[in-house]
């Protein structure tokens, strides 16, 4: 492959499925590429990935929480647990972009350094590039590519207050990392501003009293509330510094996946994730007006839930063509 030529989509898809690291890196570069021919190539690549992996393979996890809560260090500890369990892990780490320069410092690799030179761990950093509520638009398509090659795909997002939970709409399981002695997350939960994550973990249990207090407040706030699927979120405590509570956290994340699978909701949830991505992306580009041209949000979600499986990029282009009058 020359540097400027686009890859052959089917060959790239089969190399990614065979866990070729260079191929995955090229695929992620391709999914980041905004030029029209690259978009077509990317759509063909995604369509060529095995359907089973897209619909029900692996485990796509979102991890979010306020800045300083220790998301990256918890992620580093989780990586070690998963590796001990024989699972391979891909990470999409989203960092903020500079509002002035558009540049970004992608620092999460540093905090996750524990993975060192392990070839079964793959970390791609992404700048959120000022869009998508703390998530970058590339996260969903890139997650799909990673799911074709890795057992666990974890998306770590910028903590930006209530919006940070956006990630929950585009992952199988969302983990919220709460900062001990900070009431913000509890307030958001209480007020119903923030959607309920699937697992809540209070990090830094090593600091003692404050962490225990936050955990008990969270448990009280959550009470018996469940999410739309009927899942009741557990609240745990852990310490990335001491390595305590990490096994239990990994178990809790997996039990949500098992729960979805057992109830036959797993594939539906994946589809819903894609629908959320499509609608969100359309809203960014065309506003409510554009959504209305497609019959409004409710109708659109029903349509997407019943549509045959398509790559997100191809599906998006179709919807786009229906909104734009003369193209």
């Amino acid at each position: 492959m020359t540097r400027t030529a686009l890859p052959e989509p089917a060959a790239l898809a089969s190399a990614v499925s065979a866990r070729d690291r260079l191929a995955l890196a090229q695929a992620l570069n391709l999914l980041d590429d905004r030029r029209p021919p690259a978009r077509q190539c990317a759509a063909a690549f995604l369509d060529a990935l095995p359907a089973e992996k897209q619909e029900s393979g692996g485990h796509l996890i979102g991890i979010t929480g306020p800045p300083g809560a220790g998301k990256s260090s918890l992620t580093a500890s989780l990586i070690q647990v998963w590796r001990r369990r024989g699972l391979n892990v891909a990470i999409l780490a989203v960092d903020p972009s500079s509002p002035i320069s558009g540049g970004a410092l992608l620092g999460d690799r540093l905090r996750m350094h524990a993975s060192g030179a392990d070839r079964e761990v793959f970390i791609r950093s992404l700048a959120c590039r000022g869009e998508f509520g703390g998530l970058s638009a590339e996260v969903w398509p890139m997650s799909l590519a990673m799911l074709a090659a890795f057992d666990i795909v974890l998306v770590e997002t910028v903590g930006v207050g209530q919006k940070e939970i956006d990630v929950s709409k585009m992952t199988d399981t969302t983990c919220f990392v709460a900062q001990p002695a900070s009431g913000d997350s509890i307030q958001f939960l209480k007020a119903g501003i923030m959607e309920i994550p699937h697992v809540i973990v209070v990090n830094k249990e090593d600091i003692g009293m404050a962490a225990r207090k936050t955990l008990s407040e969270l448990k009280t706030t959550l009470g018996r509330r469940t999410d739309a699927d009927g899942w009741q979120a557990p609240a745990l405590s852990a310490s990335a510094a001491l390595g305590s509570g990490i096994e239990a956290l990994a178990d809790a994340l997996d039990s949500h996946r098992q729960w979805l699978l057992a109830r036959g909701q797993f594939t539906a949830r994946r589809r819903r994730c894609q629908a959320e991505w499509l609608v969100k992306h359309l809203r960014e580009e065309f506003g409510r007006h554009g959504i209305n041209r497609l019959g409004g949000e409710t109708v659109l979600f029903v349509e997407l839930a019943n549509a045959p499986r398509r790559s997100p990029i191809a599906a998006y282009e179709d919807l786009r063509a229906r909104i734009l009058p003369h193209s």
Partner: peptide
């Protein structure tokens, strides 16, 4: 810092990396 300020996306993992880790990061980060 300068790179970020002129609009590059910067991956910097701090000191004391092995050449193997540098190549790994270059690949994964594209």
């Amino acid at each position: 810092v300068k790179g970020r300020d002129v609009g590059f996306e910067i991956v910097y993992e701090g000191i004391r990396l092995t050449p193997e880790q540098i190549a790994k990061a270059a690949l994964e980060e594209g």
